[in-house]
Simulated scan of single mutants.
Amino acid sequence: MQKRSHLPPLQTLRAFETAVRLASFTRAADELALTQGAVSQHVRALEAKLGVSLFVRERGGAVPTQQAHALALQIRQGLNVLERAFDAPMRKHKNAGMRDRAREPVQLTISVLPPFADRWLAPRLGRFARKHPHIELSLRKETTLARLNGHDGVDVALRYGPGTWPGVQAERFMEEEIFPVMSPRYRDGARPRRFADLAHCTLLKHRYQPWEPWFQAVGLDLTEPRGAPVFDDAGKLLDAASDGRGIALARASLVERELAEGRLVRLWKRRVTDIYAHFVVWRADSPKHEAIDALRRWLREEVIRRAG
């Protein structure tokens, strides 16, 4: 007799993981295109199934517990595995033989997080303009999740996350390596020698980039640092590290300039790939599919150029 599965519904797991990652039922509802009440119901259903409280309900919102963070990390890794397993093959490029100069001018509005726009995308846009002069890229730097519904003026988005957003097409174009960085001025340049030495350092924390995946990857039995300075913006996190205020967990794409200029140094060469990745996201029925296809191809080319 086949055993009955004890797994909660996938939508419940996704709602819970998103609520923990964003530390907000409201933000989770926006990302998943659900109501706040629906997200809350999913979380309560999971709490009832496990017999534990996963959030501390406060006046200003709900705060995930340490157990919630640990469970969400495992769910996040599982969702990432599923996403890779069912990743659809790339669509064939339409009208690939058409020459750019014969095409009508197109304006493509891109929603992108400010740190990624400023530190990775903007310095490379000159190459895109030279290759596709008929496409004018307009960057909308924002932290809110663009709905791509035809009413917000956004044609395509570059997102960092699990790649599971309802109602849109999502294509992974770059994985992200994460590693600790510090200023040569921090502790007068005395670097921690072993991974375990981080337990005695000031660890700067990004609200949406937890340390635990890196801890687990290098075999450290540590949890998220408590009482650490917390930043919502990855750029400000790296600025704080450059000022010598502590050690930050950096994404390779955002820290290229600081490493090249010596304002930050990388600690250890251990390669750890983040469970999240960079995705280009668009609507399947977008009337600007040719320009979006050109952007997708160019992004992949830039990643190859960067690796080389």
Rank of each mutant, 00 (worst) to 15 (best):
V20A: 03
R21N: 01
R21Y: 05
R21D: 01
L22S: 04
A23Y: 00
F25L: 02
F25A: 01
F25W: 04
T26M: 00
R27W: 03
A28L: 10
D30V: 13
L32R: 04
A33H: 10
L34V: 03
T35G: 01
T35W: 02
T35M: 02
Q36W: 01
S40D: 01
S40G: 03
S40Y: 00
S40M: 02
Q41D: 00
H42Y: 04
H42F: 04
V43Y: 01
R44D: 00
R44I: 00
A45D: 06
A45R: 05
A45H: 09
A45L: 13
L46P: 02
E47I: 00
E47M: 04
E47H: 02
A48N: 07
A48E: 07
K49E: 00
K49H: 05
L50Y: 01
G51Y: 04
V52S: 03
V52I: 06
V52R: 06
S53Y: 05
L54Q: 04
L54E: 07
F55I: 01
R57P: 00
R57G: 01
R59N: 04
G60A: 09
G60R: 10
G61C: 09
G61V: 06
P64Y: 12
T65C: 13
Q66P: 14
Q66S: 11
Q67I: 11
A68D: 02
H69R: 15
H69M: 13
A70D: 11
L71N: 04
L71E: 02
A72V: 01
L73S: 09
L73N: 07
Q74Y: 14
Q74R: 13
I75F: 03
L79C: 10
N80V: 08
N80F: 12
N80Q: 11
L82V: 05
L82N: 13
R84V: 05
A85L: 12
D87S: 12
D87Y: 15
A88L: 14
P89F: 14
R91L: 14
R91E: 08
K92I: 15
K92S: 15
H93C: 15
K94I: 12
K94T: 11
N95E: 05
M98R: 13
M98T: 13
R99P: 14
R99H: 13
R99S: 11
R99G: 13
D100T: 14
R101T: 08
A102F: 08
A102H: 14
A102G: 09
R103F: 14
R103L: 13
E104G: 08
P105D: 06
V106R: 12
Q107E: 10
Q107F: 08
L108T: 06
T109C: 15
T109H: 11
S111E: 04
S111L: 08
S111F: 05
V112L: 07
P114L: 05
P115D: 02
P115G: 07
F116Y: 10
F116E: 05
F116V: 11
D118N: 15
R119W: 04
R119K: 06
W120L: 04
L121M: 03
L121A: 06
P123Y: 12
R124M: 02
F128M: 07
A129C: 11
A129V: 12
